[in-house]
Nucleic acid binder design. Structure first.
Lengths: 202, 202
DNA sequence: GTCTATAGGTTGATAGAC
DNA sequence: GTCTATCAACCTATAGAC
């Protein structure tokens, strides 16, 4: 029966999870600034004040939604460091990254995309997912590679985000998005190892 | 000498253009909702009220920034309709689209990306740039193509947006972004005509 | 854990003088 | 064309009762 107390109260963890679920959806649909704490609380049948029992402030709700992502990038960096530096390492690394994307990850990415300026602000003041990619690119392409090559490599990792962008307004399922992203990663990484033409002639 | 009146006033068109320039930057940096009319006016040495002489309301400023984009898609559609339906038409069409991207277009795209939820709202209530791409995809792939193929084709057109996404936080110049987008379009369109492997075997 | 009540501040927008 | 003055609406967040 969970930890319900019998009257209108719920377990702390349960309510907290509900708040996060609703906030994730509203922050994505309407944007963080356009979503008021009132919007969130009313949808749960609570008052604004009750929200402040579970979270210090509105931004902490967002932080809880964002946490636990840089860890993944760090693991990827460790994995790359342990790999033999073969020519197809960029492809294997990017494919590993994109293949690890789950539908839950997609929804978090949607939210991040829907609040770009805000995420940029948080980025500047602490932990960052996107800037960590700079290290990944450095590890794979070297800091001396030309900007166009570096950007293309980055795009090979970012195909999930790109697919999400293109899928906007369509009825594409999360699985379609991930599959298209994988295909795009293969294509982009391939272009990096054979930049000119599509045959293998000179 | 322009149309300055000699005292503190400026020509209407001139002030209007300045407002649009500042708004484009602030809407991109901070987001539409987080940018107040006060932010815009103060940066120009005006009062909020003066803004309302040039624009009916805040949203009309955004609309002025957004206008004149669907035209481009319509032209693309006409061009596609007039082309022979060869196997490389998707590549040629997507490349034509991406190649026509200017640094000015990039900045407008940046702004659109920074305000996804709002743009989606405007989309639902009238003219739309993104949904028009559905027609492009239909014309090139047919409505019967599987979702993964359709999405991949869409991504081949959306490489400028994807490159912009990946370029965030880097020092990539607009020209680098456009060049990387072109390369990505070639790679993605290539993957569409030869979906399996990178050789040309079965 | 949730409520009512309210503090304290910002916002978009309008009226009317100059 | 720009200003001052003002408004109603809304926001985040806190205090304190239950």
């Amino acid at each position: 029966m969970s930890t319900s107390t019998g009257d209108g109260r719920r377990s702390g963890a349960e309510t907290r999870a509900q708040i996060l679920r609703v906030a994730l959806r509203l922050f994505t649909e309407k944007g963080y600034e356009a979503t008021s704490t009132r919007d969130i609380s009313e949808e749960l049948g609570l008052t604004k004040s009750s929200l402040y029992y579970h979270f210090r402030n509105k931004e902490e709700i967002l932080a809880s939604l964002t946490a636990q992502r840089r860890q993944d990038v760090t693991e990827l960096l460790d994995w790359i460091a342990a790999q033999p530096r073969t020519a197809d390492l960029p492809l294997r690394a990017a494919l590993r990254w994109v293949s690890a994307t789950t539908p839950e990850n997609l929804q978090a990415m949607r939210m991040a995309h829907a609040n770009q300026p805000l995420m940029r602000r948080l980025t500047a003041s602490g932990q960052d997912v996107r800037s960590a990619f700079g290290e990944v690119v450095d590890a794979l392409a070297g800091e001396d590679a030309d900007p166009r090559r570096r950007l293309l490599l980055r795009m090979a990792f970012d195909t999930a985000g790109a697919a999400l962008l293109s899928a906007q307004g369509t009825d594409a399922a999360p699985e379609d998005v991930i599959e298209a992203a994988r295909a795009a990663t293969v294509a982009l990484a391939g272009a990096l190892t054979a930049p000119e033409g599509q045959g293998d002639g000179a």
